[in-house]
Amino acid sequence: MQDVVLALLAKEPSHGYELRQRLRAALGPLGDTLNSGQVYVTLTRLEKAGLVSSARTGGRPDRPDRKVYDLTAAGHRRVADWLAEVSWTPRPELAEFHLKLAAARAARLADPLTLIDAHRRELMRRLRDAQRAALAEADGSMAGLLLEGVVLRLRADLRWLESCERVWSGHGERS
């Protein structure tokens, strides 16, 4: 979240509520789940870390929030680093689930196929939520684009569960 807020601030010195508006534009309905205080908490942390500076302005009487935030030189460098960085998050939960199945099987604690079924149902529930949200978006919307990514990841996980099921059901027959 810190990098996101910094990057949103790179456009121009801004009020906290302007950053929230930019987040909302990019996230659509997904942005509703962000705590509105989260941006301010993050800004405070960034200021303490010397990445952001703030100045009080006269502001408008209808806006209680009079602070304008700006990137410091260190903040600009961090944004540049963040943009250049290629982040691909490994998914520890895959290895964890894989090992869970192996351990459950070895100790005869649970049937791997039952665990796979439970997992698949949960992923289907999440896919349903994501796909329903995607259907509510107009084609080409920013939020729709993000949701497409969420949907693709869930589909990949569901396909991997199919492979798990195929292999573990084979193991069941042999033992």
């Binding site: 810190q2 996101v4 509703d32 962000l34 149902r121 289907m124 529930r125 999440r126 349903r128 939520d129």
Partner: peptide, 19 residues
């Protein structure tokens, strides 16, 4: 499997954007 008619969780847990 019968899937629930309405969304059961928030969309937020689909993103995992934390502080």
């Amino acid at each position: 499997v019968h899937l629930p008619a309405a969304s059961t969780g928030g969309l937020g847990d689909l993103l995992g954007l934390g502080g």
